[in-house]
Design a protein around this nucleic acid. Structure first.
Lengths: 106, 106
DNA sequence: TTGACAGGATACCAAAAGGTATCACATAAA
DNA sequence: TTTATGTGATACCTTTTGGTATCCTGTCAA
């Protein structure tokens, strides 16, 4: 899937993948660790991780026999780019983002 | 689909639906008008519109024998809420949103 | 009234998506 | 060196999804 917008949005469209993102936002995890959070096999979790990786939202680093999964900071760029194109309609909520930004910037 | 986050993200996951959003951001359209923009049947376009409506991203108003489709201003709220939860990782791109907001706010 | 036009609704189809089971392989540990 | 662990890869299954075709209903215009 060569379109970054499509692959990003696709990666976000599944609740399991969004939860994986939430978990990885707290700490990096191996595939086996991540599987412990869900009621499915490692193979299924690994498929989700592949989709997330294709979408640029995470990075998968091989370390010995383990596979470390981390959130990719710039991965959300295509999504935010697309969303910001329609600010004039959805800027209601952007107020909150603005606050978050100002908290971070200083 | 009772989960607003899921139905919103699902609605955004298809390129045709995102293009519909782009079109509707310029002007409201009937189903027949929208169909003119794509290489598919009215039935297919209507299905996409139903998904977008389920996701709260558009409103469909019956007007005589026509069906007027409009962008729903607050529809992106669940998406932006979810995204803003991970600001600390993706705030790189939030800079641009900030600029867009400041252009609109005055 | 009689068409023509805009949409619902349904059934159906092919492909993609989410998931499991299984086997193979490399590596860490005993 | 065994043995167990963590993962990759493949095949397979079921459900969902994107799409068409078809038919039916309502509405606007001659």
């Amino acid at each position: 899937m060569p379109d970054p917008v499509q692959s990003s949005f696709r990666a976000l469209a599944d609740p399991t993948r969004r939860e994986i993102i939430a978990i990885l936002s707290k700490e990096q995890q191996t595939i086996a660790q991540l599987t412990g959070h869900f009621d499915m096999t490692r193979a299924a979790v690994k498929k989700h991780l592949t989709v997330l990786s294709d979408g640029g939202l995470i990075t998968m680093e091989q370390q010995g026999r383990e596979c470390i999964n981390r959130l990719s900071p710039g991965g959300m760029k295509p999504v935010l780019d697309w969303l910001s194109y329609f600010d004039q309609f959805w800027n209601t909520r952007l107020e909150n983002l603005k606050e978050a930004i100002e908290r971070n910037d200083t």
